[in-house]
Computed example of a mutant assay.
Amino acid sequence: MPQGFAGIEQQLLVWMVAILRPGAALFAAPLTGSTQVPLQLRLVIALAIGIPAVQLSGVHLPADGMISAAGLFLALGEIVIGLALGFAVQVGFAAALVGGETISNAMGLGFASMVNPVSGQSSSAVGQLLMMMATFLFLASDGHLLFARILIESYGAFPAGGAVPLQLFAELSTLGGLIFAAGLAIALPVAAALVLVQLILGVLSRSAPSLNLFSVGMPAAMVTGIILLAMTAPLLADAILAAIRQGLDQAAGLAHGG
């Protein structure tokens, strides 16, 4: 074997370990986790983030090689850490989607759904609107750069090949509560006003039984909801941005071992 290729196998193993954590994080994170993002682009970004981070922090390869029980646990640990960081950043986007679904149901637009290009699943029209707003706010606030920095800093607390702390799973269990709380905070200004509209329509239906509630109530709720969305757009943007920052803070806490 030529002298220049003597350590190429060891170097390729280091690169393989380096791509696991960023690759899993990009798969679970917003924007890069979309089905429309090519796999080749994810691999290039994962290598660009993982190789310098692993070279700085070091990697502990198993003595028996990667095709062993120790190598399997190493790969699983890297994937679990990457998925945890990616899911934590998803908090803001998931909260925007929950808020959009709540507003859509209150407006009577729950049936108006379309395919979400990020997840590939159907979601309401208002949910799509808030998801696009979350995407613009995430990019405008340099969330993608902060996420890359969080990934690199995670190697300081959890070096490649080290043990995965059990408190990581306990902290992941709190993400569901954060998503629902942030989603309700996003939907509160519009949904609360729409509930009042529904109450007024209920009183009118009781006072005038001959009134066709479906022909009057549904257009009134839709028009009121559209007007409220236009009026409360700055408040919705602030709530979504706060949820995105909360997700990034959660990811930073996980990356630092807290």
Rank of each mutant, 00 (worst) to 15 (best):
V98P: 03
F93C: 08
A237M: 07
Q36G: 11
S113H: 08
G86A: 05
A112K: 03
N212M: 06
P159F: 00
G183K: 00
A70P: 13
L76K: 09
G65I: 05
Q121A: 12
L145M: 09
V164M: 02
F147Q: 04
D64F: 05
S34T: 08
W15M: 15
T32L: 05
A191H: 13
A88E: 03
A255S: 02
L188E: 09
L199K: 08
G110F: 04
Q198S: 11
Q90I: 09
Q121S: 11
P38M: 12
F111K: 14
V195W: 13
M231T: 13
Q121W: 03
D64H: 09
A112L: 08
S123N: 13
G100I: 06
L194N: 04
L74H: 04
A160Q: 03
E101D: 09
A252C: 06
I244Q: 07
M231H: 15
A29W: 00
Q167D: 14
G65N: 00
A75T: 12
V80W: 09
I244C: 01
A18L: 02
G77Q: 01
A112S: 11
N116H: 10
S68N: 03
S34D: 10
G143W: 00
A221S: 14
V89N: 05
G100H: 02
A239G: 12
V91L: 06
Q246V: 13
M114R: 10
V118Q: 13
V80R: 07
V14L: 08
L248W: 07
G253L: 13
F158C: 10
G92Q: 02
I67T: 14
A157D: 07
V126A: 04
G92A: 09
G7H: 14
T174D: 12
G257V: 00
Y155M: 10
N105K: 12
L83T: 06
A239E: 02
A96W: 01
A70I: 09
A125L: 12
A187N: 01
L83H: 03
A84T: 03
L201F: 08
G82C: 01
Q246F: 09
A239W: 04
T232V: 15
V223T: 11
I152C: 10
G177M: 00
